[in-house]
Nucleic acid binder design. Structure first.
Lengths: 139, 139
DNA sequence: TTAATCATGAGTAGATTAATCGGGTATGCG
DNA sequence: CGCATACCCGATTAATCTACTCATGATTAA
């Protein structure tokens, strides 16, 4: 029931980008220092984040990465969905489930409810909330 | 972010046991038929469930397994905790985390909140709720 | 004593994952 | 142009994890 490192790292990376107020691109090497993730792994994690429109990149000298959305418009739920595909704790909930007992599966409904509760919580938190020094007022 | 098969199967098995009203032990072979899980894997999954006090077993002829608690007193949260160790979507939340950035880790708090939301939901559902033919009134 | 049934530690094949590698491509500067 | 900087990306690997099986032992009732 653990998130992949990709999801956790994606959150770290986007948060790191969001914490740079300037509008200049941040190099991968800098992100690596700030997050403790290797440069090459960062490159791999950034790919889907770009495709999803969270990050814009600039090539060449003085290039780097920069947020393409306001931190207040990026929820943790969006990030996790981008990296994991879907927020669900059982495969039988993803796309068209192949489980032959799914028609009236009692336990399936439980996993569905639990997944949904988690998703609602993740969707209620934005990067901007995390930047705010106040320690999560509603936690 | 998926549950292990062990957790899902444990829920199936306990629900299967709960659905037998009689007080006679149910053989592993029967459980296997009802749940679609191999006998040997069931035996493995039942071990922690016995240790946790959900199931009592009777050896020998006419032996089998039987619930040792009322279905209304077994929550899905308890089942998942028994099988997974803890309900958390990030290792950095389990026991004493070894992550050196955990002191003031912003993202850690997010995973904490999401895990907690899921746990609350799972703890609110009992086996008795699932037995009830009414389709989860509050879902 | 025999058949039924649960108990358990060890083992295995396959999948998944985190991370690396080795190259490629765009950009700016002199 | 030629070179340095920096991002881009498909393929691969090493390690871990997981679902599941095996072989054998222990208990009970008839």
């Amino acid at each position: 029931m653990k998130l992949s490192a990709r999801s956790r790292y994606a959150a770290r990376l986007l948060l790191s980008l969001a914490s740079h107020e300037s509008n200049t691109p941040i190099r991968t090497a800098i992100l690596s220092e700030e997050t403790g993730i290797t440069i090459q792994f960062i490159e791999q994690i950034i790919r889907p984040l770009k495709k999803a429109g969270f990050i814009k990149s600039v090539r060449g000298v003085a290039g780097g990465h920069i947020l393409d959305k306001a931190p207040s418009e990026i929820t943790l739920g969006q990030i996790v969905r981008t990296m994991e595909g879907a927020i669900s704790i059982s495969n039988c909930l993803d796309c068209d489930s192949q489980c032959d007992r799914s028609v009236d599966c009692k336990t399936k409904k439980v996993w569905e409810r639990a997944s949904r509760a988690m998703e609602v919580e993740l969707d209620s938190i934005t990067l901007a909330d995390l930047l705010d020094p106040q320690d999560s007022a509603e936690a």
